[in-house]
Design a protein around this nucleic acid. Structure first.
Lengths: 237, 237
DNA sequence: ATTCAAAATTTGTCTAGACGTCTATACCTA
DNA sequence: TAGGTATAGACGTCTAGACAAATTTTGAAT
């Protein structure tokens, strides 16, 4: 490799790798060459390669995992947490195609936790929805939602059709609802969640617990969502 | 210095410097010790010190200038550019004490540029105000303002008293005015401006040219403002 | 085939030294 | 005194090597 004067070598390497990525030589999620491979390719010291990679990590273009390698960072979606936040709106606003697929559903008796959040008696029948949210076919989050069964009988079919809880709620006369609380934590995904998110079991997920209420303040949904931390970033405003 | 195991040395150095800064050992604007001084103080290699400093630069806590040294970064003020933006409101909203001091004033004949922006004939008498805006005693900007002299005769004294153009305009019956245009560029400050801003001559300033109009749309002020780029960040919404 | 431990890979940290670039200062010269 | 120049100080880049830490692969034993 020949270096042009005036610009430091590590910056030229950074530039080259960046153009390789935007040219699709390395695609999002792909493994980058190892440091030693880059050392041989560019004919420089390992530290010089590392300086270039550090810049790419800094600008969030790649992600490095010790002992594994460097990977092209998937485009991270900023997910604002507001009281009127709607998944499809956010994704559409980023010019990406949203999709929310139902994986399984079940009617069961509310555990004490679910009952507490939905403000119903323990044992009350609730609908459990397990779904995965995607943008452009890339899974972003898996969610478990609980809804009071008495009020929303038959909502599952509507949800499958419309692929949207917001739409399904409308069919039940709820034109407006809002997020009451959101609790955020970081955990490791279950095997099932990792599989659905198509991410490694040892990569963390951002886990949120949320309660949605209708305009009268009555809880209509309690949900636990696991976001892929490589693809989603929550924004609190 | 003794290092605790489990945490890399550069991170411990970063932590120590960070606590020194928050403890006021180094204040905003102060020069940090040189790399070699830190090398002696911590008893490590220069590269290790540099790794720690790089982290501080990355998190915007310090700013490094080649050949001069590292400086504790001043808190950057977000300055929204809106049609009703008022300097004192912004600063007060950040719980800081605003001050606007008149440096010099003069009545002169309008140059073609000034005349054009104020929508008057070249040669018309205009008031030139040269002032510096501060927050908590730290200079943020220097401004040169031009006002039509005929309309605002005696405004200088009011401005000196109230330290506010908004207030002074009110005395002339202008309760409401708005920003018509703002042009933004980056330049190097004049010697005088650098001195008033208490910043190095080679640090850039954000320069804005603006026209304020009264509610009837008549220009009342044409101003050129130089913001310290180390202390102010303009926000366009 | 499964499991467990050792070895190889790969990235992270630290040290050491050389030279380049930029800045400020002291000094010399006109 | 003003202006240019030399020099020292300070940060920027690059190379070289060693070891640590995390992960993956390999291979042996069951």
């Amino acid at each position: 490799m020949d270096w042009e004067p005036g610009l430091s070598i590590w910056k030229q390497i950074e530039k080259k790798l960046l153009s390789d990525i935007s040219d699709g030589v390395f695609s999002p999620g792909d493994k980058m060459p190892t440091e030693m491979e880059l050392v041989r390719r560019f004919g420089v010291n390992r530290h010089t390669v590392r300086r270039a990679m550090a810049a790419l990590v800094d600008s969030n273009v790649v992600r490095v995992e010790q002992g594994r390698g460097a990977f092209v960072q998937e485009q991270i979606l900023d997910y604002p947490l507001g009281s009127k936040t709607r998944f499809s709106q956010i994704v559409t606003g980023r010019h990406r195609l949203p999709d929310k697929r139902l994986i399984s559903s079940e009617v069961l008796k509310a555990s004490s936790t679910v009952a507490q959040f939905l403000d119903v008696k323990p044992g009350t029948r609730v609908i459990e929805l397990y779904s995965v949210s995607e943008a452009d076919g890339v899974p972003l989050a898996v969610a478990t939602s609980y809804l009071p069964a008495a009020r929303f009988d038959g909502i599952v079919e509507i949800f499958i059709q419309t692929k949207s809880l917001t739409e399904a709620f409308k069919r039940f006369g709820i034109d407006d609802y809002s997020r009451k609380t959101t609790r955020i934590s970081a955990t490791l995904p279950s095997t099932r969640a990792a599989s659905l998110l198509k991410q490694a079991k040892n990569r963390p997920v951002i886990s949120t617990e949320s309660i949605d209420v209708d305009s009268a303040g009555v809880p209509i949904e309690y949900g636990v969502t696991a976001f892929s931390s490589d693809r989603v970033q929550l924004i609190v405003e």
